[in-house]
Nucleic acid binder design. Structure first.
Length: 271
DNA sequence: CGGACAACCTGGCGGC
DNA sequence: TGCCGCCAGGTTGTCC
């Protein structure tokens, strides 16, 4: 489900309701999502901790607490939303964890595929420390991007998906960025010209910003915390558009497998 | 470093 | 209608 823009919308949608709240309790229906921690231990450690801040790092949602960090990765189908105690929502069909808050509301985590992961740690870097730079941060400059690309021999699609290379880009935004930059996904990273590097740098930031402006892509499971859908899926140029004409040149969009992921691109104007 | 593949899970959809 | 196989916004570990 969620890539950087979707996770950003989740964080923005929860922030006002969550900052300042204190966790009273927690109930987990599927313990494996807590890693090695038992639900009881997780709940005991979390209870009484107040949310001081809420932010995003890559695709991770980070609740900065009194003593610890509650970190949640939504993986493919995870959702976070606020509900009044006892109130029932559609997403509750796949409810996995419920956090009781000090104001009569709950933070709920639902996740169809159970891939999502929750961490409660004192050291945030232990979870997010290996992530690459935030592509929308001011210090992620063209020069920084060039330096990271320089000697990498992998194909560019695989590299964009590598979270230690850049944090937050996933399958949709990788395909869209490569289309916008006019670069074929199977190109080896170290063969990009200076001009192509620059086009890709701007394309990555552009599609992520546009994704946020459109409030994310709601293809199947992703919804904002308030339950509404994003609209960026209506603006995809190639993702999910196999056989449809390329919006730039009319050539049918191809789908193939690169880095074990379905990859969509225009074989004519992405070179 | 990098590629391939299996695992972790469940639901939706297209094909027959 | 029903069943089956395939596919899915992600990551991690293993093997070569």
């Amino acid at each position: 489900m969620p890539e950087l823009p979707e996770v950003e919308m989740v964080v923005r949608g929860l922030r006002d309701d969550m900052v300042g709240r204190t966790f009273l309790n927690m109930r987990a229906e599927w313990a494996p999502q807590l890693g090695d921690t038992t639900p009881d231990a997780f709940a005991a450690r979390l209870s009484g901790q107040k949310v001081e801040a809420l932010w995003r790092r890559g695709k991770y949602v980070v609740f900065e607490l009194t003593d610890d960090y509650l970190i949640i990765h939504l993986k493919m189908t995870g959702r976070l939303y606020i509900a009044r105690e006892g109130e029932v929502y559609d997403a509750d069909r796949f409810l996995r964890v419920v956090f009781g808050l000090d104001n009569g509301y709950e933070l709920r985590f639902s996740d169809v595929r159970k891939f999502g992961r929750l961490y409660l740690v004192s050291d945030v870097e232990g979870v997010v420390g290996k992530l690459g730079p935030e592509p929308l941060d001011g210090d992620f400059t063209l020069e920084a991007f060039r330096a990271r690309l320089g000697n990498r021999t992998r194909n560019i699609k695989a590299l964009l998906l590598d979270q230690s290379f850049i944090a937050g880009v996933g399958n949709i935004y990788a395909d869209e960025a490569l289309w916008l930059a006019g670069i074929a996904p199977q190109r080896k990273a170290d063969t990009l010209t200076a001009e192509e590097q620059e086009r890709l740098y701007h394309a990555v930031r552009s599609v992520l910003n546009e994704g946020i402006a459109r409030e994310g892509s709601s293809i199947s499971w992703y919804r904002k915390p308030d339950g509404s859908a994003g609209s960026y899926q209506n603006f995809f140029k190639v993702y999910g558009r196999e056989d449809e004409p390329c919006p730039r040149c009319g050539t049918p969009v191809l789908k193939l497998w690169i880095a074990q992921r379905g990859t969509h691109y225009c074989p004519h104007c992405q070179t």
